[in-house]
C-alpha cells in the first residue's frame, strides 16, 4: 500500500511539521484574541501583510530575525486598528474583521506594486535553513521530522508553550481568560476589560503576522499574492477544533497539516491519476468545515466571545 509507505516516511512527517508551523503561530494568535472575547477575522489579511512585511524587510537588507520582528510589528499595527474598532467602540466583530482583512490585503498588494514596479517574478531572499538538533535528531522517524527544522518552526512550538503558560499560570492570563468569560467580574476587580481585550487583539494579531511571515521566510523564499490562500480562515476553524486550548489547537494544526501533506503525496500516486487534483486541494477546506461541525456540540466556547462590553451596562 502506497499510503502506508507515505505515512512511514520521514519526509512526510517533516513536511507535516513544516506545514503546521505557520498555522500554529496564527492559531495561537487567534486563540489569544478569542480567549479575551474578540473574534478576529482580520487574520487572513494580517497574515498576508506579515508574509510581505517580513520578506520585504529581509529583501531590504535586514537580518532574518529582524524581518520576523517587522512582521510582528506590522501585525500588531493592524491588530490595533481592529482592537480600537471592535473593543471600545464595540462594532460588529464580523464586519470589522472582514474590513481589516480587505484593508490589510489591499494595502499589502499596493505597497508591493509601488515598491517593486518593474518585476515580473518576485525576487528571492535567503530563507531560514533547517537546524539539526544534536542527539534528538537521531531518534528514528520522529527525530528527523521534529528536530531538523528551521528556527522559526522551533519558535512556533515555543509560542505554544508560552501561550499556555501565560494563559494558565499567570495573573495576566487569568485576566485575559476572565475578560472572555465574565467581563463584568473583571471590571469589578478594578481592571479594564477594554485594555485587556485590546492588548490580546494586538498581541494575537502580531502572532498571526509571524505565521504569515513563516510562509515567505521559511516555507518559501519569496512573496506571491495568493500564498496565504485561506490559511487564516482554517486557523479560525482550528481554534474551535482545539476547544480554545493551546495544546489541543497545536495538535489540531499538526493533524490538519498531516492531511495536507498526505493529499499532496496522494496526488502523485495511482489515486491521483483517477481523482481530479481539485478534489485534493478542496480537502483542507472540507476538513475544516467537518471539524467545526464535529466540535460544535461541545460548549466550551468563551462565554463572552463576540459580546461587546460597555461599562455600567449589564
Amino acid at each position: 500500500m502506497e499510503i502506508i509507505d507515505i505515512l512511514l516516511s520521514v519526509s512526510f512527517w517533516a513536511a507535516a511539521i513544516r506545514i503546521a508551523s505557520p498555522l500554529i503561530f496564527a492559531t495561537m494568535g487567534e486563540l489569544i484574541c478569542e480567549r479575551a472575547g474578540v473574534l478576529n477575522l482580520g487574520i487572513e489579511g494580517i497574515m498576508v501583510a506579515g508574509a510581505f512585511a517580513g520578506w520585504f524587510a529581509v529583501l531590504s537588507g535586514l537580518p532574518l530575525w529582524a524581518g520576523v520582528g517587522v512582521a510582528l510589528l506590522v501585525g500588531m499595527t493592524f491588530g490595533l486598528l481592529h482592537a480600537v474598532l471592535s473593543v471600545p467602540f464595540g462594532l460588529s466583530q464580523h464586519v470589522v474583521g472582514v474590513g481589516v482583512t480587505l484593508f490589510a490585503t489591499s494595502t499589502t498588494f499596493f505597497i508591493y506594486r509601488v515598491a517593486l514596479p518593474e518585476v515580473s517574478s518576485p525576487p528571492k531572499i535567503t530563507a531560514f535553513q533547517p537546524v539539526e538538533i544534536p542527539i534528538l535528531s537521531d531518534i528514528p522517524l520522529l527525530g528527523q521530522a521534529l528536530f531538523n527544522q528551521t528556527s522559526l518552526t522551533y519558535a512556533a512550538f515555543l509560542t505554544v508553550a508560552l501561550t499556555a503558560f501565560v494563559l494558565y499560570r499567570t495573573p495576566l492570563g487569568l485576566a485575559v481568560r476572565a475578560a472572555g468569560e465574565s467581563p463584568s467580574a473583571v471590571a469589578a476587580q478594578g481592571l479594564s476589560v477594554t485594555l485587556i481585550r485590546m492588548g490580546a487583539v494586538v498581541v494575537g494579531s502580531g502572532l498571526m503576522a509571524v505565521g504569515g511571515a513563516f510562509l515567505t521566510m521559511s516555507a518559501f523564499d519569496s512573496f506571491f499574492f495568493e500564498m496565504v490562500g485561506g490559511r487564516g480562515w482554517i486557523c479560525i476553524a482550528l481554534v474551535v477544533f482545539g476547544a480554545w486550548k493551546p495544546g489541543k489547537a497545536m495538535l489540531g494544526a499538526i493533524l490538519f497539516a498531516a492531511f495536507d501533506a498526505l493529499q499532496i503525496r496522494l496526488q502523485q500516486t495511482g489515486v491521483g491519476a483517477i481523482v481530479p487534483y481539485q478534489v485534493f486541494l478542496m480537502m483542507p477546506y472540507v476538513l475544516s468545515i467537518l471539524a467545526l461541525v464535529l466540535m460544535s456540540r461541545r460548549a466550551e466556547v468563551p462565554a463572552a466571545l463576540m459580546v461587546p462590553f460597555n461599562k455600567g451596562e449589564r
Binding site: 464586519v95 472582514v98 481589516v100 489591499s106 498588494f109 499596493f110 506594486r113
Partner: peptide, 17 residues
C-alpha cells in the same frame, strides 16, 4: 497601482461602520 481603489473601499467600509 489599481489597488488604490481596493484600499479606498476597504477603509470606506471600516469608517462607515
Amino acid at each position: 497601482p489599481t489597488y488604490l481603489a481596493d484600499i479606498m473601499l476597504a477603509s470606506a467600509l471600516l469608517m462607515m461602520v
